[in-house]
Computed example of a mutant assay.
Amino acid sequence: MNDSLPLEGIRVIELGTLIAGPFSGRLLADFGAEVIKVESPDKADPMRNWGKEKDGVHLWWPVQARNKKSITLNLRKKEGQDVLKELVKESDILIENFRPGTMEKWNLSYEELSEINPRLIMVRTSGYGQSGPYKDRAGFGSVGEAMGGLRYITGFPDRPPTRVGISIGDTLASLFSVIGSLTALHERSHSGKGQMVDTAIYEAVFSVMESMIPDYLLSGYIRERMGNILPGVAPSNIYLTKEGTFIVIGANSDGVFQRLTEAMGKPELANSQKFSSHIARAEHMKELDMLIEEWTKTLSAHEALEILDEKGVPSGLIYSVKDIVEDPHYKSREMIIHLEHPELGDFPMPGIVPKLSRTPGKVKHTGPEVQGKHNDDIYKGLLQYSEAKLEVLRANNII
């Protein structure tokens, strides 16, 4: 493995707060980009106070802020806007997730910034995108999940729509923003020019909605809430075990289904008219799920999964965080890493995805625990400001 990180030499300015913008910054920082997080001197990123708390430290912030630097800068004032423009001259990517029009109000539009640095890639993540009739609306991840179609199909048919247990709309948008920024970086290596990356949260959600559009427009089918099953796919469900826990089994292809019937001790089911084909199993899904659960309820989760694994049937326990922490595969893949936190000591957090064979990413630290921790590093070092100039900026509440 190479000790250098693949995005070393790329400087990123991270504006915005909470998840949709900052998660993009975290992902780029994991692979070596220098990410400079900009926070207002009088208003920190609310993420600093999110999540559970231990000894006065909120536990979400170190995960989101890892590997980043922090400076303070008041973008509502012209002096702060001028400082940002000087940073833009020295940077490759700018990430923001404000409501469209905010950067323009601050004289920091893409047109103005690209005149200063034609190579700049400006990554803009918002609820509805930078254009269209809804662009000025306030947009949170939850709203994007609803408009993108995810909320409508999540839950059980006899209950109202529910949410996924995480901020999936924000994180999906962040992932697409990172794809856009890396794509633009690659294109810049040929053209020498930057560009704007426009990611809408609702579009990021909509993009992963599989065949929903042709299903409706070509066959008139509207996918509804189906609980734990997939429409037309069987068996693919969760099943109760003897000790009251659930396991998930996916055995919808013919070959895998045959192996499942062997695991159940009922190989004759694979040849029965009701279950012998993909279409037949979908038509008799409820009956089939009942037969499978009759079998799983006679076994502990461990016993059932051991048998299914021996037969090559995709299956698994529905993990709680306790199961994740104790699982040897997570440990082997370094998916729970430990860093030294300045106040809490050992600090566990998720590892890096994806894993590169030659230049893997790395988490070097748990992020800036105070706003403006790297003001001197950036303002004195990168921008070569004198102490006298910094004193003026402080006196004017710019930093």
Results as ranks from 00 to 15, higher is better:
residue 53 E to P: 03
residue 168 I to L: 13
residue 81 Q to N: 07
residue 241 T to K: 05
residue 348 P to W: 01
residue 52 K to T: 10
residue 162 T to Q: 14
residue 315 S to Q: 11
residue 84 L to M: 12
residue 62 P to T: 04
residue 259 R to A: 10
residue 97 N to V: 08
residue 273 Q to M: 11
residue 207 S to V: 10
residue 370 V to Q: 09
residue 172 L to W: 08
residue 43 K to A: 15
residue 272 S to F: 05
residue 72 T to I: 06
residue 74 N to W: 11
residue 352 I to Q: 00
residue 196 M to I: 12
residue 134 Y to S: 12
residue 366 T to K: 10
residue 261 T to K: 09
residue 305 L to H: 13
residue 308 L to W: 10
residue 16 G to Y: 04
residue 229 I to R: 14
residue 337 I to G: 04
residue 240 L to F: 02
residue 151 R to A: 09
residue 116 I to R: 09
residue 313 V to Y: 07
residue 177 S to I: 06
residue 373 K to W: 07
residue 247 I to E: 03
residue 212 M to K: 11
residue 25 G to N: 08
residue 137 R to G: 04
residue 76 R to E: 14
residue 33 A to I: 02
residue 378 I to Q: 07
residue 147 M to A: 13
residue 161 P to R: 13
residue 99 R to L: 09
residue 361 G to T: 00
residue 362 K to P: 00
residue 240 L to I: 01
residue 136 D to E: 15
residue 356 L to S: 00
residue 285 M to D: 07
residue 190 H to L: 13
residue 188 R to V: 01
residue 78 K to S: 12
residue 360 P to L: 00
residue 192 G to W: 02
residue 245 T to N: 12
residue 194 G to C: 12
residue 395 A to C: 04
residue 315 S to E: 10
residue 113 L to W: 02
residue 152 Y to G: 00
residue 282 A to Y: 02
residue 206 F to N: 12
residue 159 R to H: 11
residue 241 T to M: 02
residue 205 V to K: 11
residue 241 T to D: 01
residue 260 L to Q: 08
residue 340 E to D: 13
residue 143 V to P: 01
residue 129 G to I: 03
residue 174 S to R: 02
residue 50 W to I: 09
residue 117 N to Y: 05
residue 74 N to M: 08
residue 239 Y to M: 01
residue 125 T to K: 04
residue 47 M to T: 13
residue 58 H to L: 01
residue 233 V to L: 04
residue 66 R to E: 00
residue 205 V to H: 08
residue 196 M to A: 13
residue 18 L to H: 08
residue 191 S to T: 15
residue 62 P to F: 04
residue 396 N to T: 10
residue 38 V to I: 15
residue 336 I to G: 09
residue 262 E to P: 04
residue 334 E to N: 15
residue 235 P to N: 05
residue 76 R to Y: 09
residue 169 G to C: 05
residue 49 N to E: 13
residue 128 Y to S: 02
residue 104 E to R: 05
residue 116 I to Y: 02
residue 43 K to H: 15
residue 343 E to D: 08
residue 50 W to V: 13
residue 131 S to V: 10
residue 294 E to Y: 04
residue 259 R to D: 03
residue 108 L to Q: 05
residue 122 M to K: 06
residue 147 M to H: 11
